[in-house]
């Protein structure tokens, strides 16, 4: 009596649903159940935040990344507060869990974590942990390179550094110079020349961004300062050998003909001379302060 034969409509709907299921099966076989990548396992590993974000997880990742940046920036300006940089790793971890492809969060995050006090959290171990998570999820050569660098620069562990550089260099698409790094690590690990080579390399690479470029320039200036400090130390020893006492001011060395003028570091700030010990260093006011721990 009512129009629309139920079995005709029923059959049409059933047919369409069968086709829909078929398409789903084909797609699932070819590409997996979620959008293309293996993030499924990752989300299922108990991250509530990613669930709650529905399909907006990358946006939430951005929010956490911004929070991580703010946290890092704030604490960097306040060297004496308790629990400094405490939240840095958890925030970065959350960011990269929500968006496992967030390359910058791994790479910059690792720098923030590994930088020695007061410039960073002084936690190279966590930096390596974060980068290793990146290796597990998306396996980019950049992460190997960064891990190698943390081993080299912060931990002075040249064997491990060489190992990570080499493994990164073996990945498809990795640049040739990663293998060079590995070789440099193995032959002259703690050499200041090796450092200079590595940082110059960073500076010249086209994919270096502004922040990293500034860092590299600063590192190179610090290396220059270390060279100059070596020369100044030799001058102080020479003065002590000639006069039998330590100099109190740079002017005394100039008067003795050992220096041409009052020495300034590459940033233009005068070096300090400790008249009690004869120790030479960059001034606390210098942008180069503190100098990196000399690799041994």
């Amino acid at each position: 009596m009512r129009p629309g034969r139920p079995w005709v409509y029923g059959a049409a709907i059933t047919l369409l649903m069968v086709v829909a299921v078929g398409v789903q099966v084909v797609r699932g076989r070819t590409y997996g159940d979620t959008a293309l990548d293996d993030r499924l396992l990752y989300l299922r590993s108990g991250t509530v935040a990613a669930k709650a974000a529905l399909s907006f997880d990358t946006l939430l990742a951005d929010v956490y990344w911004i929070r991580a940046l703010q946290h890092f920036g704030n604490d960097r300006l306040r060297p004496n507060i308790p629990g400094r940089f405490e939240l840095l790793y958890p925030l970065l971890d959350l960011t990269t869990t929500l968006d496992p492809d967030f390359v910058v969060a791994y790479r910059f995050g690792a720098i923030f974590l590994s930088e020695p006090d007061p410039g960073g959290a002084s936690r190279p171990d966590l930096a390596i942990a974060l980068l290793k998570k990146g290796v597990r999820t998306t396996n980019r050569w950049e992460y190997y390179y960064d891990i190698g660098f943390v081993y080299y620069w912060n931990l002075h562990d040249y064997t491990n550094a060489a190992d990570w550089f080499r493994r990164g260099g073996d990945l498809p698409g990795a640049p040739w110079w990663l293998r060079t790094y590995a070789a440099v690590m193995l032959t002259k690990g703690g050499d200041r020349q090796a450092s200079r080579f590595l940082w110059q390399e960073v500076l010249q690479r086209p994919d270096t961004n502004e922040w990293l470029r500034n860092t590299a320039q600063m590192r190179l200036l610090q290396l220059d300062a270390l060279d100059q400090i070596d020369i100044l130390r030799r001058a102080v020893s020479e003065f002590q050998r000639r006069t039998g006492k330590l100099p109190e001011r740079w002017r005394q060395l100039v008067a003795a003909g050992l220096l041409r003028g009052e020495p300034v570091d590459p940033s233009g700030t005068p070096y300090t001379l400790n008249f009690a010990t004869g120790e030479v260093n960059v001034s606390g006011y210098s942008p180069l302060h503190p100098l990196p721990t000399e690799p041994r």
């Binding site: 979620t34 959008a35 990358t58």
Partner: peptide
């Protein structure tokens, strides 16, 4: 299979990266 399956239609992250 019966409910609408929208997750695979979400390729925002892939495209942005």
């Amino acid at each position: 299979y019966l409910l609408p399956n929208l997750a695979p239609l979400d390729v925002k992250a892939q495209v942005v990266h």
